[in-house]
Amino acid sequence: MRSKITGLFLFQVFLCLVTITLVLIPLFWTDIPWPTIARDHMENFGMAASGARNMVSAIYLGYRVFDTLGETIVLLVAVSGTIGIIAHGGDVLAKGFGDPSRNESLYQEKTTLVKKQRTALLEVVTGKLGPVVLVFGFYVMLFGHLSPGGGFQGGVVVASGIVFLALGGRADGSTRLTEAGVLAKLESISFLLLILASLSGVVFGGGFFANTLAQAGMPEVGFIVLLNAIIGLKVGAGIGFMCIAMLGRAE
């Protein structure tokens, strides 16, 4: 009986391979060149239309900015959903990041575990490197229209800087950037600012996400820089919140 089942299985595998071959070989052998119409349009008119030198930023925050708004909402939902799902399941989040109504003594034992695993090297290196990484993150975020980078990339680098500060800083350190309340407020305020920036075009007679700064007489590229800064703050606060909640934090 087993040999019969094995034979049937091999026959099914053979059928799958034949189907895959018949479908995929024409795809692999096609020699149709990639269309150049979008590239030519961007090369000729992209800089005049958006003011940014980096064409990827121009598409990301100019031509396809609705896509970016949707992606930001997806990221917000994913972070809050992840934290919510985990916080109901147990005591593995850092103190203060989970469900505040739960018993705090459950968190205590995990944070002491984290404390025991830290070494002097980790503390010194991450504590000294954190501010430098933060400055680099803001550079990547604010110069995204001229060089490779942009809001999301800079935001992720800022989040790494926040995680470094959380791992290396002392409990009575000079920064409050690694606390749960501060990060959550920063994310909410950034998202509110993003919605306000998108709606500001409607107030001044343009459409949704119209370039209000250009109508006010400022350079065309200002709106992209503004959106980059807002998205970077929001992404940095959100991902930093999630990573600190999972890694634990210096107590």
Partner: peptide
């Protein structure tokens, strides 16, 4: 641009 994103996200956040 994609290289920066992939390095920061793939090697940083998803590893964490």
């Amino acid at each position: 641009d994609v290289a920066i994103t992939e390095a920061a996200v793939g090697a940083g956040v998803s590893t964490v």
